[in-house]
Design a protein around this nucleic acid. Sequence first.
DNA 1: ATGTAACCTGACCAAGTCGTCAATTTTTAG
DNA 2: CTAAAAATTGACGACTTGGTCAGGTTACAT
Lengths: 216, 216
Amino acid sequence: MPRTAERLDEKIRARNIRIILDVATEVFSRKGFDGTRIAEIAELSKLPKANIYYYFSSKQEIYSTIIAHLIAGWDDALSKLRADRDPADALRDYVRAKLEYTRGNPRESRLFASEIIQGARFLSESDRAHMRAATDKYVAVLDQWMQEGRMVTINARHFFIMLWGATQFYSDFEPLACDALHRKTISAEDYHVAAETIVNSIVGGVIPSCSTDKLL
Amino acid sequence: MPRTAERLDEKIRARNIRIILDVATEVFSRKGFDGTRIAEIAELSKLPKANIYYYFSSKQEIYSTIIAHLIAGWDDALSKLRADRDPADALRDYVRAKLEYTRGNPRESRLFASEIIQGARFLSESDRAHMRAATDKYVAVLDQWMQEGRMVTINARHFFIMLWGATQFYSDFEPLACDALHRKTISAEDYHVAAETIVNSIVGGVIPSCSTDKLL
DNA sequence: ATGTAACCTGACCAAGTCGTCAATTTTTAG
DNA sequence: CTAAAAATTGACGACTTGGTCAGGTTACAT
């Protein structure tokens, strides 16, 4: 049955792979690559350890699969930044989209952060090139806004780093965010206020309507 | 020799403990608690593994010692924020001090980030309470500035999170920062531009001199 | 010199690590 | 049904883990 049986074959296969990757994402995001034991993934998956190795040939293959998969999810928020849009609107949508993504995918976000902290050992060169290209593309959008006088002249690359860092914080460093906000958990409303605060602070300082170019 | 020999005894002791903690900080910051093997700490320390256990009774004791030690280093940057200062000056000094600290202590910064990502399992309640209190204290300073009309009304807690996230990024996620900036390493000059960019963006949006309160 | 406290360390242990494999059970196509 | 493909699994091996310990060496006060 090489062809016709694909549907149900894939159902069992797909289901188990999904469960394994789902659980592995959680564990890897908490323990990092070296700290993760596949026995723990097996337990939480309710599968015997050997069954994990039926679907994946090694711990690194599981890890790399997850990394490759989540890279694909990063571009959406950045797509809000188009040169023909109003800078303030575009940046507001970007910050909101970025926070929305990190809120909806905290484990993926944390796993990525963990991978970077550990030296980006398993982030492929093509993935990094992809991210560099994406950054360059949107840096160009900001630079165009600056040339058109629609935005204060700043270093666009550092500006992106600032936005990235500010938005990542809520899921990656959730315990700290909870402490800072006096919360047990970060609610959707908190994410909303976060977006408002970031946007009100940053956009107000970036948009030339208040001409703070030479404030310092 | 219970008293008189303390100097040289302490020299050997202090030196080895320093080396161990120094190496352990690097390894822990890269691998996290679970991923770190004390055999690796021993190798990099050029000490036999058993000698590590002569000075520390367990892996967790080494880890907790480092955590407790670095908590003490956080307050300095925040001390720049005093209510009687000019908000713009104070925030600028704060951002600079924070970036300077993270630049000079990247391993500690990374280790702390790693600990938080992994769920803050070894961050003591007293340490967390200390950090909460420090946040509250400086949130009050910002709130006072807002009441006095010296600062736009925003959520001070989210504002601190934004600053924290933006400044941590350069050391914690150095590979990403390098990619974004097209650098092999982040130089002192890059840190300087980072501070300028953050300050120019944020202060400009926060200081009411440009009255952007109702921009959105 | 000598005694003693501090320091050092090779060898060891029980438990856990990743990954393998042969044997079995389940699923599916025809 | 049957046969084969897919999925499952307990047991296992080679190695590594955190941690121990007995017996050694070094440093120093007297």
